[in-house]
């Protein structure tokens, strides 16, 4: 480790000690540690979810299947993966805004969005978004008009929720790969429109 502060964090020392003990006892395989991190950091990420959104924008029949059977529809794209054992896709419209949280831990559709950012796991987000979503979103730069209905989804079981954002204006006729570049992770969680 090169970072001086991290060297002196007792958690860093403890993680290192645990890692060494587990490897010595054969309870973890160093190759599995590396492949696990490689998979989560490189193979998964919001680009997968963006692909789903772009396909739904471009293909109305796919969108219907996605809203009806999320898991079946993303499987058509070869997607699924960890923490996506059952998937519900909720659609934003001009009148409805959806936002996803896990108040009890930090459940998140890893297979479509990768590992979550720190704010999603923060005590502030988890505690507040079920109670005052408009304020939380405003603090994150997303001001919702008063006449939009807000639906908060607390993923308290093994169902994972994924927001299908509205298609932006001026994107008619664009191919899916270009449409996907218009999709941001925050829209698929529901903290951006």
């Amino acid at each position: 480790m090169t970072d001086h502060d991290h060297d002196h964090d007792p958690r860093a020392l403890r993680a290192e000690a645990l890692e060494a003990i587990l490897i010595e006892r054969g309870l973890v395989d160093p190759a599995v540690i590396d492949s696990t991190l490689d998979y989560f950091e490189n193979d998964l990420g919001p680009m997968l979810g963006a692909q789903v959104v772009a396909k739904a924008w471009a293909d109305p029949a796919f969108k219907r299947r996605l809203l009806d059977d999320g898991l079946g529809a993303i499987a058509e794209l070869g997607l699924g993966g960890p923490q996506v054992d059952h998937l519900v896709v909720v659609e934003n419209t001009p009148d409805v805004h959806n936002v996803v949280v896990c108040t009890l831990c930090s459940c998140y559709p890893w297979g479509l969005l990768g590992l979550p950012p720190a704010w999603y796991k923060s005590l502030a987000y988890r505690s507040r978004v079920v109670r005052e979503p408009r304020n939380v979103l405003a603090e994150m730069g997303c001001e919702l008009p008063d006449d939009i209905e807000v639906r908060v989804w607390d993923s308290s079981a093994e169902v994972r929720y994924f927001v299908l954002p509205e298609r932006p204006n001026g994107t008619d006729g664009l191919p899916e790969d270009v449409l996907a570049e218009h999709v941001h992770r925050d829209q698929m969680i529901g903290v951006a429109r």
Binding site: D3, R11, A12, A15, E41, P117, A118, W119, S122, E139
Partner: peptide, 19 residues
């Protein structure tokens, strides 16, 4: 809300996740 976008803040967090 603080806009902390990090997945991991330090190498030990990666280790903790992987272990």
């Amino acid at each position: 809300m603080a806009r902390d976008e990090s997945v991991f803040h330090a190498p030990w967090e990666r280790t903790a996740f992987a272990l």
